[in-house]
Amino acid sequence: MATPKNRVGKIGDIERRLWNYFKYIAGVDEAGRGALAGPVYAGAVILPPFSNITVKDSKMLKPEEREILFEKIKEEAICWSYGFANVEEIERFGILKATLLAMKRAIDSLRVKPEYILVDGNISIPDLYIPQETVIRGDRYCLNVASASIVAKVLRDRYMRTLDEKYPDYGFGKHKGYATKEHREKIRSLGVLDIHRRRFRLL
């Protein structure tokens, strides 16, 4: 079931409607889709019915706030998981298919099979065979999607910090592979790495 336009209302309103019919509702979201380097990550979260956890879009949070909420999500959730698609897969399939692949891997890794899935964006995940609903800006309207957004962002940021240790001159710990002025200057002066997405406009 696709959502043709942005929703209005409070975060969690969509789940509160669905929790009357489904116990295990998963939210799924990605992190790193627009980056120039590194994998794209996806998080998946199943919160208990009528959860009152206080979360919001990960992009609206400071890194330390995301880390705190990540721990709360792990405590509150019935289950959570993540998946990713590496740079080779991004280069091979393109970023859209790689993102959907990461999302499918996150869903497939949940220890509890969801009865219904809320997907951030407007494109359904192929080959899931589980009812799903796409929600534009779902990380602002769905508790499960916002939680999944935090999971994906925290885990990807942690991974990018490990790349910062491996390639200390590129500043991955700061820009996390995104297309900042500093990152592009580093590519220009130091060259392209294997972890860069060559399909993207790097300079």
Rank of each mutant, 00 (worst) to 15 (best):
A2H: 13
V8S: 13
V8D: 05
G9Y: 11
I11A: 09
G12T: 02
D13W: 13
E15L: 09
W19T: 11
K23G: 01
Y24Q: 05
Y24V: 00
Y24N: 11
A26G: 04
G27T: 06
D29M: 02
E30W: 01
R33S: 08
R33L: 04
G38V: 05
V40D: 07
Y41L: 02
Y41K: 01
A42M: 09
G43V: 13
G43N: 06
L47Y: 08
L47C: 10
P48E: 14
F50E: 07
I53G: 10
I53K: 04
S58M: 15
P63I: 12
P63S: 10
E64I: 13
E65F: 00
R66G: 05
I68W: 10
L69D: 04
L69Y: 11
K72E: 13
E76M: 07
I78H: 09
C79G: 08
S81V: 04
F84W: 11
A85K: 00
E88I: 11
E88S: 10
E89K: 06
E89V: 10
E89F: 11
E89P: 12
I90G: 01
L96M: 07
M103N: 03
M103V: 06
K104W: 04
K104R: 04
R105D: 12
R105Y: 06
R105K: 13
R111N: 06
P114W: 09
P114Y: 02
V119C: 00
G121R: 00
G121Y: 07
I123A: 11
S124N: 13
I125H: 07
P126L: 07
D127Y: 15
D127I: 09
L128P: 13
I130P: 04
P131W: 08
Q132Y: 12
V135W: 04
R137A: 14
G138I: 10
R140V: 00
C142Q: 08
C142P: 02
L143S: 12
A146S: 09
S147K: 02
S147Q: 00
V151S: 07
A152E: 01
L155P: 01
R156D: 06
R158M: 08
L163A: 14
L163T: 12
Y167G: 01
D169V: 02
G173P: 05
K174Q: 10
K176N: 08
A179S: 14
A179M: 06
E182A: 15
R184I: 09
I187T: 14
S189Y: 15
S189L: 15
D194S: 15
D194Y: 13
F200T: 00
L203M: 06
L203H: 02
